[in-house]
Simulated assay, not measured.
Amino acid sequence: MENFTFNSFTLQLEGLNVSKYWMYPVFFCFFFFYLFIMITNVGIVVLVFIDKSLHQPMYLLFCNLPVNDIVGSSIMVPRLLSDILQPPSERLISYYECVVQAFISHMFGTTCYTVLMIMAFDRYVAICNPLRYAAIMTNKMVIKLTVFAWGVALVLVGILLGLTIRLNRCRTRIMNPYCDNASLFKLSCESVVINNVYGLTFTVILFTGSIGSTVLTYAKITVVCLTSNNKSLNSKALKTCSTHLVVYLVLLFTGFINIILHRFPQYSEHRKLVLIMFFIVPACLNPIIYGIQSAEISRSLSKLFRSKKLTPLS
């Protein structure tokens, strides 16, 4: 028979099941991933901030991604690193810390999609309405789009977690490497039908809106490119849109794998690894993809390094 502890404020994280032989290799692997995420993403944000040539809507909107990656990775990876070195019985977390971690982890996932939606809108205006781009994509519009991306995520995730924290808890074990909404409401012995319905609605709205807007945007961009004889326009469209599309597909793939593995309990360890990769893989790839593909960012980086080399030592 299962032992119940009602409304305990101390929870136990199951974490990753890592043998003693693999404990330190896994720890250092995730540590270097986190270090890479922080250096590259913070570097991109600082570069855009200090280089006035990058003060363009495209790069200002893109800055939302590295900021989101920094926050999302920081709420999950350090805690994961700490738990890897702890025996399973000592992987304890307070209920309030768990709720905060769940809130930020869902904000991270949702904001990834909403930011890519507003970036797709920017590319649509740049390619389909190039003459009106400066008039449409003003600083005010950039602020509005940024508020939309974070505001929509805040409302959707706020309701999601609000429905969960109202429940009484009778269990204390989180069956994940970190806290999320599903893990929290599974601690309850009450009916969670509302949580499941809203969670499904949340997912459908997010994926439908994200995929629908991206498909529509790229369909219109494709039509413009096919009907235009402007090779310069087509080259620009291919370069900027391929970057955005690669980032989006990576995020979509990891998100779908996540959802699919939730339906197969026998692959719980695989699911845990995919959950972690959802935070790590896009956060590692975003600065690489944009840094390599963007001529402006590459030029700004090379200019920065050249200026450091030319700086006199005395």
Rank of each mutant, 00 (worst) to 15 (best):
Q56H: 10
Q56S: 07
N64G: 15
S53N: 05
L65S: 11
D51I: 03
I75N: 08
I44K: 02
G72P: 13
H55P: 03
L65N: 06
N64Q: 15
V46P: 02
S74R: 09
S73K: 06
F49D: 04
P66W: 08
L61P: 05
I44V: 14
N68C: 15
F62A: 10
I44E: 09
I50Q: 08
L60V: 04
L60P: 01
H55A: 02
P57V: 04
M76P: 05
K52C: 01
P66H: 10
F62D: 02
M76T: 15
V77F: 12
Q56V: 03
H55E: 00
P57Q: 09
N68F: 10
Q56E: 10
C63K: 04
V67W: 09
C63P: 02
V46E: 03
H55I: 00
H55N: 09
S53P: 00
L65H: 08
V46H: 01
V77L: 15
I70V: 14
S53D: 01
G43H: 11
S74K: 09
V48E: 02
L60H: 05
L65K: 10
D69W: 07
F62S: 10
N68E: 06
I75D: 03
L65Q: 08
V45K: 06
D69T: 08
D51P: 00
S74T: 15
Y59F: 15
F62G: 04
G43N: 13
L60W: 07
I44G: 01
N64C: 12
L61T: 08
V45H: 01
P57L: 09
L47S: 04
P66E: 04
Q56D: 12
D69V: 04
S73H: 09
C63N: 14
S73L: 13
P66Y: 03
S53M: 07
V67C: 12
V71G: 03
V45P: 02
G43L: 10
C63V: 11
I70M: 12
L61V: 10
D69E: 13
K52I: 00
N64T: 11
V67P: 01
I75S: 15
D51V: 06
I44R: 04
Y59I: 02
I70Y: 07
S73G: 11
D51M: 12
I50N: 03
D51N: 13
S53T: 06
I70F: 12
F62W: 14
I44C: 10
P66L: 08
L47A: 05
L47Q: 05
G43T: 06
M58N: 10
P57M: 11
F49V: 05
V45A: 13
N64K: 09
V46D: 01
F49K: 14
L61W: 05
P57C: 07
F49W: 14
N64W: 13
V45F: 00
V67R: 13
I75G: 06
Q56T: 09
N64V: 06
S74H: 09
H55C: 00
V48M: 04
C63H: 02
F62T: 05
L54I: 00
K52V: 00
V46Q: 03
N68G: 07
Y59K: 01
I75W: 10
F49E: 10
L60G: 03
S73C: 14
F49Q: 08
M58A: 13
V46I: 11
I50D: 02
V48S: 00
F62E: 01
V45S: 05
K52R: 15
L54N: 00
P66D: 04
